[in-house]
Structures are given as C-alpha cells and as structure tokens.
Simulated assay, not measured.
Amino acid sequence: MTSLALLYLKAGLTGFARHGDVLPSAPLTADVTVDRAHLAAYNEVCGFRVGENLPVTYPHVLGFPLQLRLMTDRAFPFALPGLVHVENRVTQSCALTATDPLALAVHAENLRPHDRGTQFDVVTTAAVDGEVVWTGTSTYLKRGGGAGSGAGDHTAPPRPTGVWRVPADIGRRYAAVSGDRNPIHLHPLAAKAFGFPRAIAHGMWTKARCLAAFEGRLPDACTVEVRFKAPVLLPATVDFSTDGGHFALHHPKSGKPHLTGAFPHSA
C-alpha cells in the first residue's frame, strides 16, 4: 500500500481543493494477514493481554490504510484535516484469531446533515472465507453550516470504578502501531495549530483501552459502540466507570465526558 506518511502529506497539500457533496461509491479492498509482532505491540499499547485472539478493535487498525486512501482520494469531497471522529460502532459475529486471513473492504456512505455541519460514515468490513464476520462504522463530522448549538452533555458523572493515568507519549505510541499519524496526536505544537492546547489521545485508543478493562468478559459475538465527547489532553488523568452494558471516561475535576459507550447487542 501507498505509504501512510505520503497520504498524510497529500491530505495537507490538497485539502484546500476539496469540494462537493457526493461520497465516492466504489469500495477499496485488500487481503491481509496478521503480523503477530504488530498484534503484540497493539495489545501492549492498548492494555490487552498478548494472545492469539484479535481484540475487537484490532481490525479497525488493519483497515486504516484503506480508510486513509479513501479519504485522501481526489474524489473525496472533504479535506481530511479538520474532520472529527465522533462515533464508532463495531460488530463481530465470532472471535477472530491471528491465523485468520482477512479480506477487507472500505467504503463511505450515509452523508447527512448534523446540527454542527455534515456527517458521514466510513464502513470497514472483514470477511473470512467469503463471509463478513466484522464490521466497523466510524462516523465523522465535517464542521460548518449547521444550525444547532452543539450543546454538551451536562449530566452528573457516575462514580468511577477506576482512575487511569494517560502518559504524554500515548499519541505517538498508538500512532506507531495504528498508522494514524494525525499531527494533533503527536506533538503539542502541532496540536496547537489545530486549536488544541496540547496533543490529544486517539479516540480509537480510548475505546480500545476501555475494552481492555472487559477482557475475558466480552462475548465473541458482540456489538460495541462509543461516542467521542471531548478530547483527552495529554498527559491526563481520567475516570473510568462501568455499569452493566455501559461504560464511560470522564474528566476527574470537571466531570465532563470524554467517551460514552455501550454493548447494545451481545450474544
């Protein structure tokens, strides 16, 4: 695949020329096999135990090069810089292992209005022997043009079941295993150029870190959905809470949510 670094360079150089309101219809595909060293590195960064089974979030990383190619293609209507990852939903029908050869496909769909702009979904599927066994849907927000206020969540936070220290380098460490080298995650100065006071953690790292807390208790067939509420500024201390099929990360002082999640369908 084309170097991810070159794709980010392309995104920065051509973003000003993006326009339109039609998502490309053709999917991008690739056949992949799991590199065990890469899987082990991902598990270590996200807090999973090292083993043969793939964490439910791991196929997202395998599909990331295709996602990036899709969103940096000349036909894609929105510039990659400035897009906000607001939701992610993953469904798998069975456990996946490091020995499973995966056929990946990525496409964009469901362009729709949002009260702060425009939303769309990037859908990644993984198939084994011709059967789709994993689907990940990432919802992105293109800000601007909406009529809503974008009011936040002001409900009282639940009592934390854990307090996590998030190190300053987690953005760079996760970028090394995920390929997501968006500058807002890598260095404070780069993050400031996009309006953040410090570098921020990847949303998909926060989701994976939360799911690592359920390791051994999450069914092989399940759906896990999250909403990314507010960035985690690095370094950070966050409150983790869980109640049945729900979980969340909150700021320990303000009580504002960073992430809320649920297991709406588990077998």
Rank of each mutant, 00 (worst) to 15 (best):
Phe214Trp: 15
Ala201Val: 02
His60Phe: 11
Thr135Gln: 15
Ala147Phe: 07
Ala193Ile: 12
Trp134Val: 07
His38Ser: 14
Ala26Asn: 02
Pro158Asp: 09
His258Ala: 02
Val177Met: 08
Asp121Tyr: 04
Gly261Gln: 05
Phe78Ala: 10
Phe194Glu: 14
Arg198Trp: 05
Trp134Tyr: 12
Leu54Phe: 13
Ala26Lys: 14
Ala105Pro: 06
Phe240Asp: 04
Gly179Tyr: 01
Ile184Leu: 01
Val50Ile: 11
Gly148Phe: 04
Phe214Arg: 13
Phe120Glu: 11
Val106Ile: 13
Asn53Pro: 06
His202Ile: 01
Glu131Lys: 15
Trp164Ser: 06
Arg159Phe: 02
Pro77Gln: 13
Gly171Ala: 06
Arg18Val: 08
Leu104Lys: 13
Pro81Gln: 11
Ala126Val: 07
Val56Lys: 12
Ala191Asp: 04
Asn43Ser: 14
Val84Asn: 05
Ala212Pro: 03
Arg89Val: 13
Gly15Val: 04
Thr237Trp: 01
Ala262Val: 02
Leu234Arg: 01
Thr97Asp: 08
Val177Gln: 11
Ala151Val: 10
Val90Ile: 15
Ala108Met: 03
Pro252Tyr: 09
Asp73Phe: 04
Leu249Met: 04
Ala79Gln: 09
Leu102Cys: 12
Thr161Glu: 12
Pro235Ala: 10
Gly146Asn: 03
Ala79Asp: 07
Ala5Asp: 15
Asp100Arg: 09
Ala221Lys: 07
Val163Trp: 06
Pro264Asp: 14
Pro167Trp: 07
Leu70Gln: 12
Gly171Arg: 04
Leu6Ile: 04
Gly203Leu: 11
Thr137Asp: 10
Val128His: 13
Leu102Ile: 13
Thr137Trp: 03
Gly144Ala: 10
Glu109Leu: 08
Tyr58Cys: 08
Leu13Tyr: 00
Ile170Tyr: 04
Asn43Thr: 10
Ser266His: 04
Gly15Pro: 01
Ser178Thr: 03
Leu62Met: 14
Pro188Lys: 03
Val177Lys: 10
Ala176Ile: 05
Val61Glu: 00
Asp21Ser: 15
Asn110Ile: 00
Tyr140Trp: 15
Ser138Asn: 15
Leu234Met: 00
Leu23Ala: 09
Gly216Trp: 02
Ala230Tyr: 00
His107Phe: 14
Ala30Thr: 10
Asp100Tyr: 09
Pro264Ser: 08
Gly244Arg: 00
Gly245Tyr: 02
Ser3Pro: 02
Ala156Tyr: 01
Pro257Arg: 01
